[in-house]
């Protein structure tokens, strides 16, 4: 179904730490399985017992409502037991180290750990110290693989493919793990990615990741199939990356006029939560013809079900509670 070939017959990795290192076949495998759950989730019979008896721990070191809820729902729909641990940043500094927390949780024999952490590489570090499956729910500015997968599933459902698409990722690239995972995934699947942002929000040498860079929004959106907006992460900014929110919206916020440069059937995407009036105008965000933002949320649950299923099954086959 794709020029990148058929789906892989199994997922060969113990963890899902990032898109980096995944083959087109492995990505297709996850998406196909997620598509199955997306359909099932629209029926009355949403639950199964595929993961009955499994324990999934959501370990979140950063505040999150959407992602945490999505993971929790995904695990519960598969029949797993779920524990949520939200650890505020301040208490982490006072107390236990990341490794100690990992060891403690590991001793309770979970099947999967879903981890979000504010530092790049933290989830990988943790994965080296535990013997359950680890799923990266976002680490610093590094990767957020399930977001890229749910974006890909949403795109594939609308465009029927993931190759030969022009995708513009716009906004706060510098602080975005979503952008990095999406660049990796879309490049792997054979699409072309452009980044559109003011120069201060474009990280050094990111062109080496195989993307085109634009500072002008109208130029950057020209003839693209997908407009992916990013949240301006003011809370992560040290110093003046942008002069003001007002100026940012003026040059880089998505509104009707700027959107007119994209293809007429271009999709509007946003990983949420949106800053309305900062990076995106409500009029386009809520345009049911173009915006697939709500569908992204829906696909999030399906993708996370697929990922949890594949990882926990791998873990069980590898000897489980060893």
């Amino acid at each position: 179904m794709s020029v990148m070939g058929p789906a892989a017959d199994h997922y060969p990795h113990p963890h899902l730490l990032g898109i980096e290192g995944l083959t087109p076949g492995e990505i297709t495998l996850i998406l196909d399985r997620a598509q199955h759950y997306a359909e099932k989730n629209r029926t009355a019979d949403k639950t199964s017992n595929i993961l009955a008896g499994a324990t999934v721990v959501n370990l979140f070191y950063e505040n999150s409502t959407r992602t945490l809820t999505s993971f929790e729902l995904a695990a519960k729909r598969l029949g797993a037991m779920v524990i949520n641990m939200t650890v505020g940043t301040s208490s982490v500094k006072k107390g236990e180290t990341l490794i100690d927390t990992a060891m403690t949780l590991n001793a309770m024999n979970p099947d999967a750990l879903v981890v979000r952490h504010g530092d790049s590489g933290a989830v990988k570090l943790l994965s080296e110290k535990v013997n359950c499956a680890v799923l990266n729910a976002g680490d610093g500015r590094h990767e957020h693989p399930t977001q890229a997968l749910l974006d890909a599933l949403t795109i594939r459902r609308h465009k029927g493919r993931l190759h030969r698409l022009n995708v513009a990722i716009c906004g706060d690239i510098a602080h975005s793990r979503v952008a990095r995972s999406n660049i990796l995934l879309l490049n792997t699947m054979g699409s072309r990615v452009r980044l559109v942002a003011p120069p201060t929000l474009i990280p050094s040498k990111i062109d080496r990741m195989g993307v085109e860079i634009f500072h002008d929004m109208e130029e950057g959106l020209k003839d693209c199939d997908i407009v992916m907006m990013l949240r301006l992460q003011l809370e992560r900014m040290e110093g003046s990356f942008i002069p003001s929110v007002r100026e940012y919206f003026h040059f880089h916020g998505l509104d009707r006029a700027k959107l007119a440069n994209a293809k007429p059937d271009a999709l509007i995407m946003h990983p949420g939560p949106m800053n309305r009036g900062v990076e995106i105008d409500s009029e386009v965000a809520d345009d049911v013809e173009r915006s697939v933002i709500r569908e992204q949320v829906e696909m999030g649950v399906a993708v996370r079900m697929a990922a949890l299923e594949l990882l926990v099954q791998n873990h069980r086959q590898a000897g489980g509670q060893a």
């Binding site: 590094h142 990095r180 990280p203 050094s204 080496r208």
Partner: peptide, 9 residues
């Protein structure tokens, strides 16, 4: 540089 960007550091 490229590596820092890829690693998100």
């Amino acid at each position: 540089g490229e590596l820092a960007t890829r690693l998100g550091l």
